[in-house]
Nucleic acid binder design. Structure first.
Lengths: 212, 212, 212, 212
DNA sequence: TATGAATGAGACTTCATTCAT
DNA sequence: TATGAATGAAGTCTCATTCAT
């Protein structure tokens, strides 16, 4: 599932450590100037080692981008999953997930933005892996919605469930990639509340006040 | 409102002609390989003139990107406005606009994608102009929704109207920037229908068929 | 027959001029330090233009090597042919050619050495072209010898003719690539005379003075 | 006579063992890609130890080349000498040596080629040693020919003996460095036979069958 | 106004060599 | 004695931009 980036170095622990340094450096640089305007030398320097060392842990500059994207997904997902508690059920569970997701999108604004803008520069072989991870994100919401459907709380076709989950993702991600338009109008809490209302409303849950 | 890109050439007619050639060439190249991987030489070649001539009409490569973005907005907007007929009113008018918008997003898939991915490379001075155009797009929908509110068909606060309009934009644009996830599930017609339903539902119009 | 090295520059006259400068610079550098230890920057500098300009006339460093080899062959051949007068016939004609060839090998010592040592670094596509040129050189002598055979002055099979011609070439080229062993023992005139005697003797001409 | 390559390691047995591994690895790599395109890491890897260990036994990459050349000469010479039996005398002894030499050139094709192409990259201090070895090779034939002269079977000046011996060497080595031209025309046996005939003929032995 | 040859800073990447473990 | 991670100088090549024609 994960594409391995080959390294000249054997010590796996060390690889992990150095790549963490590298990713951290890269994310902060990519945020600031984008992938193309960031040089490998800068990445190495900010990471705290030499250009030679950088290339002991990757083959080409693009590999850094892949490592960055891969790592962002893992972090986003981890954060998200640790906030969805198993107790709650149905629509409330979905709401809880939405809350968590918006929170994470706020925390990872820059990272999400980087991914939106630079994914096209990923090494060709790796793009599918990254897209699969994005689909995996959507599937979290698909499952939550489908559970509601199965329990009779929502009436949606399969394709609607799929579409809704992608809408949810995009409506959360826009907090990152449209902040220039949103920050001046909402706090993240206000935004979350509003989007949550829109989404729940759009899913048109059965037996709510606006029926009868 | 529009930032002028200085040119060495005086003849305005000629400027317009050359820039059209240039933009057409650039769009097709940016679609294919992105802004950074496209060279000025290529742009000139595809445009049908020499690199020297290219630089008679712009100062730097980034200027081409600005011209491209600017032109895409104008075209998108033009297309959109020519499809919103003045006769219809209220929710139906909004629906009509949604329809038109999704159609345009389908027609301009590549262009929208380019803008999403390359906007960050715009010359610093010009980014605000381009963002203002995007806001202008949102305002079209803001106005349509606000009309419904004013006519009592929707109950939404000002901030909700603003948020809804940005949601609409993003839910249309995602047809371009998430086609890898959507194309396999929907035709543009299916997608339009689904998204329209979600949006209208989210706006929760008073006294419609799904009430009673 | 000749593999064309593509150039960014259109003006054919200019291409020729610049490539001459480039080849001259490269030969003198390759002589001194070999292909691998010569940098493209040095070639450009010695040629009298910038590194950027160099790359307007070639695609990769290896192209310079090809141009160099190609040009050396053309020059060697030209020099050789202009010294073989049409009047003379038979063994004398062969002797005349040998003389000319040894003279040329003396004049082009460094160039021949460069070719012997660097040919393996030629771009893969071009090696066959260069080898064909070397075979072409051998064919000059093949023809001269075959003429003698046809006139009944030599008795040699076809394969012997072929072998003899390659021996001739190598025995001339060794003046270049074994000068460390030969210079201290012979002048080029002495060497020529000796090798000529060996070769003619080896071909064992019928009915000459050393028989009876 | 042999230039010593300094080593950090004291144990002479170990030095010898490691260097053998190293040379074997290097030869096979140099054959394949030449000296410059072979990396020290590769040499160490193929030799079966680490890059750190490699540098315990040499000072610089060039040292490997020297060790390789030196070892090739020793092997070639050993092979050659073990095939020249002491019983035979005169021209026959020379013929026997020629035979042996051509056989060895066939066996060591790649090695001979490597030496021809890479000798120029030898460490400056060591080139004379290597050339001396090549001269030593020539001296084997010089001696054999001179014996014939001394016995009155050949009439040659000292310089002719020297020249002939170098011709012999080169005419054998060409089986390695011109195989692209020869392999398609001759087997090694045919080639040996032909060259032997040419050489003996060139030496013009007194009182042989082709006289009278 | 149009051309395109020239420029050179700067990007990525490699690899011989060192040195702490 | 063996290891292999770290280093950084140096190499190749690209490309935005200029300017003489």
């Amino acid at each position: 599932m994960r594409k391995n980036v080959p390294s000249m170095v054997k010590d796996e622990k060390l690889i992990q450590k150095r790549r963490e340094q590298m990713i951290k450096a890269a994310v902060s640089l990519f945020k600031e100037k984008g992938f193309h305007r960031t040089t490998t030398r800068e990445i190495a320097r900010v990471a705290g080692f030499s250009i030679g060392t950088l290339y002991e842990y990757i083959r080409k500059k693009e590999d850094v981008l892949y490592l960055v994207c891969d790592s962002i997904y893992d972090e986003v997902r981890e954060r998200l999953e640790e906030q969805i508690k198993p107790g709650v059920k149905g629509i409330d569970r979905l709401k809880q997930a939405l809350h968590a997701f918006y929170q994470v999108m706020d925390d990872f604004q820059d990272e999400v933005l980087v991914m939106y803008q630079e994914a096209k520069s990923l090494p060709n072989e790796t793009l599918p892996y990254v897209l699969k991870k994005e689909i995996g994100m959507a599937e979290i919401f698909e499952k939550l919605i489908q559970d509601c459907v199965d329990e009779g709380m929502l009436q949606l076709t399969e394709e609607e469930v799929y579409g809704a989950s992608h809408n949810i993702l995009v409506q959360g991600q826009m907090w990152a990639f449209r902040r220039w338009a949103l920050r001046s109008h909402y706090t993240i809490e206000e935004f979350t509340k509003m989007q949550e209302a829109f989404i729940i409303q759009a899913l048109n849950p059965i037996n709510t006040a606006n029926r009868t």
